[in-house]
Write a protein that binds this DNA or RNA. Structure first.
Lengths: 338, 338
DNA sequence: GCCTGGCACTCAGCGCGCGCGAGTGCCAGC
DNA sequence: GCTGGCACTCGCGCGCGCTGAGTGCCAGGC
């Protein structure tokens, strides 16, 4: 176990390195932090920290920089989450309050996060599986053509055309609409399949085929749209990632273009808390020199989607975590209100 | 006016520079192109081309590189549009054929374009103003709450909630729905306002308020959603823009995040033909060292939106133009079919 | 036992000078 | 008007030595 002071030294190294982007030496450390010991002592501590794998030297006779393991310890034990200041909070509210629809909320959120953290922001659209159904509407566009509209509690709307096997009367349609809504309105998407399972039985034989078709389209919609959408922004901040960045930036841009990768990235958040994945902790190779801070957000107590930022491992973790948390909370509120 | 041979020299310079990314000298030129004259002659021609502003030297005793003006001449007079080969065409068809909905079409198009040209692709969603109405649907969610759904011929669907000033009966709703559709189905969005102008007059006094509210929401939708969406992709190709690119890439990324800038960029296409904007011809400063190749595409003969690519001024213009044109044509076909 | 000041050592980065060679402009001759 | 020849330019790469931040180690002190 590392002594209190050595932890303090590690913290100082992380803070300085994040600030200056340059390897930090023993002398500079004692000058900038009141550690109460001499550079020589710090050097000894550094040697230990290096042995333990928390810091490393880019080359002999250079200062130390934190390793992924060092950042991990810093995040877990040494740093808290820096709360937003009042003005920052006001700015967040102000920025998000003008949103007119879901797309706008997500768009504003992504821009806001990118701006606050000066990093790349990723926001997932509220997912359907965890949402609940607000309303289902059916309308007939032609005798054997029905349009299915699905409205979620997060304000998302999905529509599908259904070509029916047989003409479907207005009365039957109204009947189906009423039955459907009474069964699934207010229920979670995940529960829908069993709730509608025996619905065709309630209809005349001639309508059963159509009812089944409509239902299967509904279920398809749930599955298909569970394939989640997301929005990213702040890619211009990639240019601040580092000096050697032709090599760094390319794989990151590639990763960001792959929705699947991003979803996995966010997916690794456990539902409640905030997740920080540092450097090689990210499964995707291209992101091995980046860290991801992500958190779930939702309209109620429950998370319906995730958001986060991607930045260099050398990032201001407390500040970033604070910003991410604050934005997630407020977006949750906004979704709840709408 | 430049002699035939000098134009030939310019063409050779552009081709070589695009290929090698290095200033091209007189000797190399005569070796790689059968110009039928000696390096000394080429040098004289080059001096003239430089006087006229078509080429420039990065420094004395280096080869020449084309200026924006040189590229302009090349594109206008010296190079055609390189048609896609049969395998390339097949690949385009294959890639786009699997698309399931509008989002998917646009998404695939942007990926395809980025891949074909190895540059950044931008695709605008089919615009509402130039689209026509396929169908309007009204459905009552509550006595005084109506949902408005608008379906366009390009498959786009927009919906809006309308809070009515007074309860609105099913019969009146059906009446309005029928009248609305008979008036505007198949018509262009731009024409809708006048077509519905006197519609409230056809209703009982008590319903007129509601009808007016619904109509104004409809008109709002047209206006609001004319604010056009677009999708970009292939940003990872930015890393191939040049060696000095920390400086180059940043403003480009910033420009790409601003939808407004991008829309303007594409907007400068005249409706029919293909547009190539080279370097400083782009109004936006950040894009002064990039070229934009764009073209309109549409489901019928008429363009409903635009697409294009953004690349370094040092790009393969004939090839890029060929790819952009081919993709635009095929996307147009797909939209027409669906 | 832990901290400290001192000291010798290491090495990346920087500036300098130099030679190479691609490329140029000019000129006299065909 | 084209060509070969020739002197000139200058960016680039290379090797060199210096500088200084930073280190590891050690002997002495609290």
């Amino acid at each position: 176990m590392l002594s209190e002071r050595r932890l303090e030294v590690l913290r100082a190294i992380v803070q300085d390195y994040v600030g200056t982007e340059e390897p930090v030496g023993s002398k500079a450390l004692t000058e900038r932090h009141r550690l109460g010991v001499s550079p020589a002592t710090v050097r000894n501590d550094m040697a230990v920290l290096e042995d333990e794998g928390y810091i490393a030297q880019p080359h002999t006779s250079a200062g130390r920089i934190p390793t992924d393991k060092g950042y991990r310890l810093f995040v877990d034990k040494l740093a808290g989450i820096k709360p937003m200041t009042a003005p920052e909070k006001r700015a967040i509210h102000h920025f998000l309050d003008g949103a007119v629809d879901l797309d706008d909320v997500v768009g504003r959120t992504v821009r806001l996060l990118a701006q606050l953290t000066r990093q790349v922001a990723v926001v997932q659209y509220p997912s359907l599986t965890r949402s609940t159904v607000r309303h289902v509407e059916l309308l007939s566009l032609a005798p054997a053509r029905v349009m299915l509209v699905l409205i979620t509690d997060t304000g998302r709307v999905e529509q599908r055309m259904v070509d029916c096997p047989a003409p479907f009367g207005e009365a039957s349609l109204a009947d189906l609409r009423a039955r459907l809504n009474s069964r699934i309105a207010g229920r979670r998407f995940a529960d829908v399949p069993q709730l509608v399972q025996d619905l065709p039985d309630a209809f005349e034989a001639e309508d059963r085929g159509t009812v089944a078709t409509v239902l299967s389209t509904l279920l398809e919609t749930l599955v298909e749209e569970t394939e989640e959408r997301l929005m990213i922004g702040g890619t211009a901040n990639l240019t601040r990632f580092g000096h050697d960045f032709p090599l760094t930036i390319r794989p990151v841009l590639e990763a960001l273009e792959e929705q699947v990768v991003l979803l996995k990235l966010l997916g690794e958040v456990n539902d409640s808390g905030m997740a920080v994945r540092i450097g090689h902790e990210n499964a995707h190779e291209g992101l091995n020199s980046t860290s991801v801070v992500s958190v779930g957000y939702g309209s109620g107590g429950e998370a319906v989607a995730k958001l986060g930022v991607v930045g260099p491992t050398r990032m201001d973790y407390p500040g970033t975590m604070g910003a991410v948390r604050a934005v997630a909370r407020y977006v949750g509120q906004i979704l709840a209100e709408s």
